[in-house]
Design a protein around this nucleic acid. Structure first.
Lengths: 133, 133
DNA sequence: ATTAGAACTAGAATAATTCTAAATTGGTGA
DNA sequence: TCACCAATTTAGAATTATTCTAGTTCTAAT
């Protein structure tokens, strides 16, 4: 397993709340380790995800993002892809009970127009009478 | 908007419970319309998703899948990407209350090792003492 | 029949990610 | 110290899913 940079990558991800893409992690790491290459970042990220030390988040229409492995949910803006953390109660036990299955985890993404996109949507509604999507 | 094939595509998706990829939809449609091209399927699928008549499901490590637009949740096998429908109670109101936000919807994916992968995992555990992932 | 606009086709282009092979690194024992 | 081994990284090509562009065809209205 490729792991020479793993600790550094882990630190970058866990000290940022930016939900970075692989490329952003790569640029952040490059500041400290100029010789590192994007493929290495992907390798390390994949290894970290396999070990559940990092969490990969896929958002419709955007590259994968990487996040701390702590259990929490997300708010996703369907317009701009912005991601925000949300700390709701853990539903695992409840879902296990409802489904009767040995579930391993779950992923809850809540769609919500972020304030910025909400403002833009209102502006364009006022301007031309209907949304531009 | 590209919509000449939309009804046929909608029919293919809604009469199948296979959670098809764009390519599978394309092959199914090609049976009836041999001249159709993959890009057209993507265009129609995108239009249908924008109108919320079809739902796109992204699964880690696999191409996007398309599903009926009815509200329901999914069970996802983290090993093979298999998708299964799950009809749990609608959480929208509860989430709206808990977050205090005007949410537009949500996406709940529950990870669960499907019976097939479970059997395989057990077999390899017995054979060589530990999982092969 | 003509025209205009929408939708389709073909295939090139793009973007994210993975793969392959070669080079480098770090650790271990001689 | 030196040589060796396995693990990891590098470099860049390859792959895959999806989108884009330009030209063509279709439909419906005139």
């Amino acid at each position: 397993m490729d792991m020479r940079y793993a600790e550094k990558i882990l630190e970058i991800i866990s000290t940022s709340d930016a939900h970075m893409t692989a490329e952003q992690v790569f640029f952040a790491l490059k500041q400290r380790c100029p010789s590192v290459v994007l493929a290495t970042v992907y390798n390390n990220l994949n290894a970290l995800c396999a070990q559940h030390r990092v969490r990969r988040i896929r958002v419709e229409g955007y590259p994968d993002r990487y996040d701390r492995a702590t259990r929490h949910d997300h708010l996703v803006c369907p317009r701009c892809g912005a991601l925000m953390d949300l700390h709701l109660a853990d539903l695992t036990a409840e879902l296990q009970r409802q489904t009767g299955l040995p579930i391993e985890g779950y992923d809850l993404k809540i769609q919500y127009l972020c304030p910025h996109c909400r403002a833009k949507a209102q502006a364009s509604t006022h301007a031309c009478g209907s949304a531009d999507l």
